[in-house]
């Protein structure tokens, strides 16, 4: 089967999952205590005409299946409802926060992947106390809640040493332009990205080490050495390549972990992203925003899994 047809098939597989996620979302609205309109609007004194419009729009006088159909229709047109807490459509609200979250999670993911793979390879290659140290560190890090690690980092580097800012993504007076602004941005990014990256890094280092140990024992590595390949080449050409599918699977299938972590980390650092928005919307009982975020996060996980499978397939052609 070609990669293309595999991708298409996998895509077809993802669609019912996405649909099921949307239905679940609908069920949460329907099952929420009180009037579904309250669930849709949140605990806000909404204008009476809006409430009436919602009732009609979502057909609350209609039987459940019809309401589900209407709900899906709204979703299909990217209408995620209106947030009274913020006085703007949820889609606008979410779109404004998306960049910050992508920046944070992207940085954390990159740091975790690069360092995790490097540490895992190092541990597998060197063995001995390096290996024990990496494994010990990974076990320890994996048990640390991100939000506590965030607080510790703030205590140490922002409050104790005063080196880095502890809240927000940019100074309140506005970001500087050009290079200075970029460096400043990094200063704000460093602590939250580290807090978010650590557990993921531990996970990646673990799987990389485990796979690398296995591959280093493989016959084909012995054969490569018998051809005169140096240890560096063995590590890059054989170990890394053969470890990659498993590492990518672990990375991709734990996207949920990263997103959950980012909700917590953003809250600790006042990072103006989706996670912080979730925290605020829960505190304000802003239901439409909460549900829209749930929908987005679920969709991201489905898509991350899809991409993972395709990438896995691209790296290892043997998979049937």
């Amino acid at each position: 089967m070609s990669l293309l047809s595999y991708t298409l098939r996998r895509l077809l597989h993802a669609i019912p999952l996405l649909l099921a996620v949307a239905v679940l979302n609908f069920c949460l609205i329907a099952a929420a205590p009180g009037d579904p309109v309250t669930a849709l609007i949140g605990d806000f004194p909404a204008p009476a005409e809006y409430v009436a419009k919602m009732r009609q729009d979502y057909g609350l006088d209609q039987p459940l299946p019809v309401r589900l159909g209407r709900y899906l229709q709204h979703l299909a047109s990217l209408d995620l409802g209106y947030s009274f807490a913020n006085r703007m459509p949820v889609s606008t609200l979410v779109a404004a926060r998306l960049g910050a979250t992508l920046k944070l999670t992207g940085t954390a993911l990159a740091v975790a992947a690069v360092l995790g793979v490097a540490l895992g390879l190092l541990a597998a290659r060197l063995g001995g106390w390096v290996d024990r140290l990496v494994r010990f560190g990974a076990t320890l890090s994996y048990a640390m809640p991100e939000f506590w690690l965030g607080q510790l980092l703030i205590l140490a580097f922002a409050i104790g040493l005063g080196w880095l800012p502890s809240q927000g993504a940019a100074p309140l007076r506005g970001a500087a332009a050009g290079w200075a602004g970029f460096v400043e941005g990094l200063r704000y990014l460093l602590l939250p990205a580290s807090a978010l990256a650590l557990r993921y890094l531990a996970l990646i280092a673990r799987i990389t080490r485990a796979r690398a140990v296995e591959v280093l024992r493989a016959d084909y590595v012995l054969a490569a050495r018998a051809r005169g390949a140096s240890e560096t080449r063995v590590l890059l050409d054989h170990v890394l390549r053969n470890a990659a599918p498993s590492v990518i699977t672990v990375i991709g299938y734990n996207a949920g972990l990263l997103l959950a972590g980012s909700a917590l980390t953003e809250t600790v650092f006042g990072w103006p992203g989706i996670g912080r928005l979730l925290f605020d919307s829960i505190a304000a009982r802003d239901t439409p925003t909460m549900l829209a975020i749930l929908l987005m996060v679920s969709a991201s996980v489905v898509i991350a899994n899809l991409l993972t499978d395709v990438l896995h397939r691209l790296l290892d052609r043997r998979v049937a």
């Binding site: 996620v21 949460l28 949920g256 997103l259 909700a263 749930l294 996980v301």
Partner: peptide, 12 residues
């Protein structure tokens, strides 16, 4: 398994 555990639990 696809559902994001933490976010879903939060919202529920």
């Amino acid at each position: 398994q696809t559902l994001p555990r933490f976010v879903l639990a939060l919202i529920v």
